[in-house]
Amino acid sequence: MASSRSFTEEDRAKALERARQTLRSEAEGILKLIDRLGDSFAEAVETILRCRGRLVVTGMGKSGAIGKKLAGTFSSTGTPSLFLHPAEGVHGDLGMVTGEDVVLAISNSGESEELVKILPAIARIGAKLIAMVGRTQSTLARYAEVVLDVSVDSEACPLDLAPTTSTTAALALGDALALAVMEARRFTKDDYALLHPGGALGRRLILRVQDVMRTGDAVAIVPRDALLRDAMFAITRAGAGAACIVDEEGKLVGIITDGDIRRALLADEHALQKRAWEVMTPNPHTITPDRLATEGLREMQGPPKIGEMPVLVDGKPVGMLMLKDLVEAGIV
C-alpha cells in the first residue's frame, strides 16, 4: 500500500535504526542456538545419514518457504530430498512418503493446523520424524523422535508478529544440519560438481581436457621435415592457431604457432621454404586427455602464457587444447 506522505530525514534515520535492530535481533537469535546444540542435533545427523529413502521436508507458510530452501540444500549436498506441502499432504501427496524416509518438519509454534493433521499419518507410514520447532512441548514435538529447539526470545518485527528472527534461526539451524550431514558423508567437491553440471563450478570440476580439446581435422599435424609453408596451410585448414610437429613415428617433437610463422617471415622473407624443425619450439607444454580442463588452463596461464597446448597419448598428438575454447566452455 503506497503512502502519500514524504520520506523525511527523520524517516531515513528511523529506517536505518530499524535495520540495525533487525540484523542485531536475528544475529542474536542464531548465536543463541549454538549453546543448545547437543545430543539431539547429533541424533538428527545420524538419523538422516541412516535414511534409506529420502529426506522429506515439510512446513507451512514462512516455515514452508524455509523448508523448500533446505530441501534444495540437502539435495545439492548429497542427501536426496524433496519438499512436501502439508496442505497438499492431507489431500493425497502423503503418498510420496514411505517408511524408508525421514521427515523434517519445521514450525515455530508446532501447532500449525495443516502440519498437525499429517503427523498421525506419518507415524502410521513409519517414517522417522525430526521436528525443528520453537515450542518443545507442542504437538509436533510430541510426535517427533528427534526435537531440535529453534525457539527465539522475540521476532525482529516491531510488532513481534511477522516471522523474522524465528525463520532466520530455522534457516541457520537447517543449514548447519545439512552441512554436518554433508561432512559426515565425506561429500567432496567432485560429488558437488556431479550434482551441478550446469554451473560454473560444476564445469570446472567435471570437464576433462578430452571434453573440450579439438580433434580430427581441427588439429594440424605436420612432419618435422615438411616446409614451413605446409605448416601454415595445415594451420589454416584446421582453423587452429598452431601445428603439432611430429617425427617419423608420429610422436610430438615441437609446435609451430601462427605467431612463429609471422616472426619468421619478418626475419626472412623466404622463411616459408624452411623446414618445420628449423622454426618449431621443441619440447612444448603438453597435457593428457584425462586431466581436468582447469589444470590445462593453469598451465596455459603460464609462465609462459600460451594459447595452444598439444594433447598427447603415448607421446602422440590426439588433440589440441586452445585457450579460446576453454573460455567458450565457461572454464575461465
Rank of each mutant, 00 (worst) to 15 (best):
G198T: 15
G241S: 07
A240H: 00
P223M: 02
L227V: 10
I221Q: 06
R204Q: 15
Y143H: 11
V209H: 02
R135G: 04
M132T: 05
L228C: 01
E155K: 12
A238N: 15
G198V: 11
A226K: 04
V181Q: 06
K128P: 04
A141L: 08
K189T: 15
S154D: 02
D225M: 06
F187D: 13
D211G: 13
V209F: 06
Y143P: 05
M182K: 03
A218G: 02
T167W: 13
Y192R: 04
D149H: 09
C157S: 11
A169P: 04
A218K: 12
L228S: 05
P197R: 09
A240Y: 03
A162K: 01
L159N: 08
S138F: 03
R142L: 08
R186W: 11
A242T: 08
S138N: 08
L161G: 03
G199V: 08
D160S: 11
D230T: 14
L177V: 08
A176W: 14
L207F: 05
V222L: 15
F233T: 10
L161W: 03
E155Y: 13
R208M: 08
A131D: 05
S138R: 06
S151W: 06
D153L: 09
V133C: 08
L129V: 14
D160W: 11
L205M: 15
I206D: 08
R237A: 12
T215M: 04
A231W: 03
L195H: 14
Y192Q: 00
R208Y: 05
V133A: 03
A242P: 09
P197F: 08
S151I: 07
L161A: 02
T236I: 07
F233Q: 06
M132Y: 01
Q137E: 14
L148Y: 00
M182F: 00
F233K: 09
L140F: 03
L179V: 12
E183T: 07
P197S: 09
D217V: 06
R204K: 15
V150W: 09
A234V: 04
